[in-house]
Design a protein around this nucleic acid. Structure first.
Lengths: 362, 362
DNA sequence: GTTAGCACTCAAATCAAAAGAGTGCTAACA
DNA sequence: TGTTAGCACTCTTTTGATTTGAGTGCTAAC
């Protein structure tokens, strides 16, 4: 048995209907809903086939059908392959997105210096707009270049190390030192670091270089090593992957996500954030020019256990050349994929533009 | 009718029992539970009186009694007045707190530079330990003194302003400037700011001073004003009151907080955080030497709407002289007040010590 | 290949009855 | 006069039986 055109149409009708209502859909509904002009009996036969093929299933004997993960997958892949895209996009843009776009502009016009703020606002807007939960990761710094280091003696035995990365991400590290430094020494250390480390990525600051610099610093060798460690830690520290979430409570709008202690588990994951990194760091390397950087996890496909009843859609934005961040949506499997994909494309597009502009003028 | 000793004992018994079980408690239970040696019938009479006095009530005719807000209030006030404190504290210390204390030490031994980290860890530990939700506010900066300002030219037209407050709270502001500055000017500007503003609070940096400094700066007057504004904004900005929460999902352990959409409302408040400021900024001024800085809101007493079924206990810690932060617990009205009060006292005590030590050695 | 018709299945809603916890009140008791 | 035993009463919760209704699969006819 294979999936002919009619079966495909019926499957799509089932899914669309289920997305809207959240109720299992029966043959009678489809018989009216589509323009196929088939009786419910015929639809029933076809649906039995679709069930056998693994695209839909019945929660119990006397209920309508619900899409399986495979069913959703087919549906989403179809959508991603872009056959219906132009059409739907046009419709949406006109109807809904108008105000979305206005909001977005507003957020972007905000002081652009503060990426964190921008991203948080973005997440909030996305969550409000889609009625799902959203998450954003700060641009991954592990490929980011060091732009500037500034050492300042703050107290006896305390050195404030201000580290600026390409794209003006600022980090502060406090270093405890055993010896006190006079202004002169501090100045030359500052020079040393900016000369040697400027423009380097985390990977490029390797052991050799550190040893080399320590040598060069003579009696301050130990200190230099200490400082390099701090810089490295600041840039690439494991908790460098900062993630913000928004709209966690939207999950209460979908009983399948909030009943039976699911809410607790889900919100726990959102609160702890560690698991989210799996969704937002994964496969950054795989992104080529040809793909959109969009990834869809449906149900069991997600690597996060508490989200096996969810679908997760993530998209990649480019902060600057080679430095990416991700933005994602978490919702029920019966989410409005079309809307979500549109919204994400929109947002990442805008982010890309904003950061590019920012960079050009800076 | 008044509240004699026996009634008080019975009320306490009712509350204690209810705290443990979460079920309405009946006369028979009390008759056995207490050492009063009274029959259930007698207890019933007394309970009827207590109900009339407004300290307990029946959810329905054939159920046991539950404490009212007033009942809880009496109970908590009694506890706060410290009559039974010594006894219970000793018991607790021995039984439970031992590992708590060990945890705390561990957290405190962490790099102390990072208040934010310390506070977050503290909140997490508190939540885990009490099984309630916790929140912490960063020390209020609006009374904090400026310690150090550092201006750095970052790009064309961009000035990075690193601001360190007493207690080593570091903030970064990015300032867009119209004119470019050479190294020499930057140096003297740095000197100017550190000479003039060092050690001042937000209040002490007033208009006169700003005008004065602008005058003194000659052709850079406009720029100086711009920078002072940035400094002031950085210190006192409305979003300066940072709040961290932890253990939000603990509310699912208490049906009265999670049923009927309560969970959604509560977690929403925790996520948005704005409302929490009402709990964590309120009445900082009222704290004298004599009080412990502990505040208990029971049910309707809380200023936050979504928490009318909760009790909130907050405590104040001293970050440094005159600079306070707060730490709080949100739980059901039937929370274990004794445990919570102990835990909070413990934590604030430790925070005070840590920050004092930190300051002394710095 | 399509459809009408019908028997069948099973979840969900409805309803009635029973169980159980706890009370208030009365009458007896010390 | 305060305390207690006893009992009728109330109201929630549990349980079980019945009904309802949506939807199916199958068969036979078109």
């Amino acid at each position: 048995m294979e999936l002919d055109e009619r079966k495909k149409k019926i499957l799509q009708a089932v899914i669309k209907n289920y997305l809207e209502t959240g109720e299992p859909v029966g043959s009678r509904t489809i018989s009216k809903y589509t323009d196929l002009n088939l009786s419910s009996a015929t639809i029933r036969n076809e649906m039995a086939d679709l069930e056998e093929l693994g695209y839909i299933f019945q929660p119990h004997t006397s209920a309508g059908r619900i899409p399986t993960d495979a069913g959703y997958r087919l549906y989403v892949d179809d959508m991603l392959s872009g056959k219906q895209e132009e059409l739907s996009q046009k419709n949406r843009k006109l109807e809904e997105q108008e105000e979305t776009l206005k909001n977005m502009q507003e957020i972007m016009d905000k002081r652009v210096d503060r990426i964190e703020e921008v991203l948080k606002d973005m997440a909030k807007m996305l969550a409000n707009n889609t009625n799902y939960t959203s998450m954003v990761s700060m641009p991954q710094t592990n490929k980011n270049r060091l732009k500037f280091v500034q050492l300042t003696q703050l107290d006896e035995g305390k050195l404030l190390c201000t580290i600026v990365l390409e794209g003006n991400i600022v980090k502060n590290e406090m270093i405890k030192i055993s010896q006190n430094l006079d202004q002169q020494v501090l100045l030359s250390l500052n020079l040393l670091f900016n000369n040697k480390l400027n423009g380097l990525t985390l990977q490029e600051i390797n052991f050799d270089m550190a040893a080399n610099m320590a040598d060069q610093a003579g009696e301050y060798g130990a200190l230099v090593t200490e400082i390099i460690n701090a810089v490295v830690a600041a840039i690439g520290s494991a908790d460098g992957i900062e993630i913000f979430t928004s709209g966690a409570t939207n999950i209460f709008k979908y009983p399948e996500l909030s009943d039976n202690g699911n809410a607790s588990r889900l919100i726990s994951t959102l609160e702890e954030k560690e698991k989210l990194t799996e969704l937002l760091t994964d496969s950054l390397e795989e992104i080529g020019e040809n793909t959109t950087g969009i990834q869809v996890y449906i149900g069991e496909e997600t690597p996060v256990n508490s989200m096996k009843d969810c679908s997760v859609v993530t998209a990649t934005y480019e902060f600057e050349k080679g430095v990416y961040g991700k933005i994602g949506i978490i919702g029920p499997k019966r989410m409005d994929y079309e809307k979500v994909l549109d919204a994400l494309k929109n947002v990442t597009g805008n982010l890309d533009k904003t950061f590019k502009k920012e960079k050009d003028e800076g």
